[in-house]
Design a protein around this nucleic acid. Structure first.
Lengths: 118, 118
DNA sequence: CGGGTATTCATCTCTACGGTTGACAAGGCG
DNA sequence: CGCCTTGTCAACCGTAGAGATGAATACCCG
């Protein structure tokens, strides 16, 4: 049971921070350097660097080297990891509702034809 | 600070915990009481109760009243909130890649037919 | 009303997290 | 070479989160 969680937990935790979600949004429009990413925020460059490390550890971004710059790049694969998890249970629950509706209708039928059951 | 997408932050934060994700998975199979939800875990009932409060504050579950029992119910609407956010940037980035590919191909063409253009 | 069940509230502890500042590594440029 | 830019590492601080335990609430049964 729940051995993993590791990566998925990191991904959700990473996106739980509005600043990091913002950065992800920004990165969807194109790669950017730490300085570029830091510009809009009132926090220190080090704080931004930390945020990027969190995103990187979660697998949401990757960083390469371009001279002394470290361009940050969005990793789309990890997003699928999340959507897959979400959609699985969303679908599961939806199907359950459909079955439940069917059962309820059947129960009504039964009650009408066989009231002293159970 | 941080007044921002409060709900989205709460949703992601709620799902960042493996125990809570597990509970969501369990709830996708049907509503359950606190005791039922607590059974599989080695933590106290109170801890489970807290987890449920987190999920409730995030809008992921709702709790009604059935005598002294408090059945927990999965709220699918909130999942869409998340998937919409995710898919938006996923799509945005994917489109960017497509455009980028096109541009790169065009650049190759140009280089081949018009190498010294200024 | 008293007792048992189901769940929450209050409090405390411990750790993780986000932020800050200061120092330092890596690499282009005069 | 020395310097400035870009970014990270390290240490520290305050707060929030997850857990435990103990007491309290809400409700059914008798």
């Amino acid at each position: 049971m729940s051995v993993d969680g590791g990566e998925l937990s990191r991904v959700f935790a990473a996106l739980a921070d509005p600043t990091r979600r913002d950065m992800v949004a920004r990165l969807a429009a194109g790669d950017a350097t730490v300085n570029e990413l830091a510009a809009p925020y009132a926090v220190s460059l080090q704080a931004v660097s930390k945020h990027l490390k969190v995103l990187e550890d979660a697998g949401l971004v990757s960083r390469t080297r371009d001279a002394q710059r470290r361009p940050v790049h969005l990793e789309l694969g990890t997003f699928s990891l999340m959507t897959k998890w979400i959609e699985r249970y969303q679908r599961e629950a939806e199907e359950r509702y459909r079955r439940l509706d069917a059962v309820l209708e059947q129960m009504q039928d039964h009650t009408q034809t066989n009231r002293s059951a159970g």
